[in-house]
């Protein structure tokens, strides 16, 4: 990364675009506090991230940051509902069960709540992942190529869902993608080339 200066407001939807190997996933990892930078500062939810240790960053992420991955990353041994429950239980949310059911309902998967990930289609799995990300009502949601493994129509639905939920919750959305059509639908687009960030239109 070189001379990188970026600020994302609450409620804003930002797309980070770039070719493979341009460093967009690295940037996402830094922003989300999954990785630490060798120099510079990262602030997340009003807190400086880069001088926290891993457990401190985990505590910060817990409940306030949501993730959606390209490979869905659902735990294969848990049902859809249990996957959504997991972050709520990790943060010790009181009405975890109710909120998990609401989140599943919001993504339209109540009938599939007791299914295991391998019994769900790719789109359904990603919807479970989105429910899981939104259930704890995070302040920021990071999405890494959320439609990368999906066909175009399903991908559109997933983006609709992500943006709708963002508006409902008032959370910021940081989306990494190489699909310009998805990026079009965000408030702001950033282009990443070989570690440089260009503010887009």
């Amino acid at each position: 990364m070189e001379r990188l200066d970026l600020e994302i407001q609450a409620g804003e939807a930002v797309a980070i675009l770039g070719a493979s190997g341009s460093g967009k996933s690295t940037l996402l990892g830094l922003l989300a506090g999954l990785d630490s930078a060798t120099s510079g500062e990262v602030w997340l939810c009003g807190q400086r991230v880069d001088d926290l240790d891993e457990d401190g960053r985990a505590a910060l992420r817990s409940g306030r940051v949501g993730f959606v991955f390209q490979n869905f990353q659902l735990l294969p041994t848990l049902t859809a509902r249990e996957n959504v429950l997991l972050p709520l239980e990790l943060t010790g949310t009181r009405d975890a069960a109710r909120r998990a059911d609401e989140a599943l309902d919001r993504v339209g998967l109540t009938p599939r709540a007791r299914h295991y990930p391998r019994q769900l289609s790719g789109g359904e799995q990603q919807r479970v992942a989105i429910a899981r990300a939104y259930a704890p009502r995070p302040e920021v949601l990071f999405a890494d190529e959320p439609t990368g493994n999906l066909d175009q129509v399903t991908g559109e639905h997933i983006i609709d869902l992500l943006l709708d939920l963002r508006s409902d919750a008032g959370a910021a959305l940081v989306l990494v993608t190489h699909d310009p059509r998805l990026a079009e639908r965000c408030d702001r687009r950033l282009h990443m080339t070989a570690g440089h960030l260009e503010q887009g239109s």
Partner: peptide, 16 residues
């Protein structure tokens, strides 16, 4: 391993 990585992403502290 994957499950642990995801749970850590979701903010589960190491000791937990």
């Amino acid at each position: 391993t994957d499950a642990v990585a995801v749970m850590r992403c979701l903010g589960a502290p190491n000791h937990l």
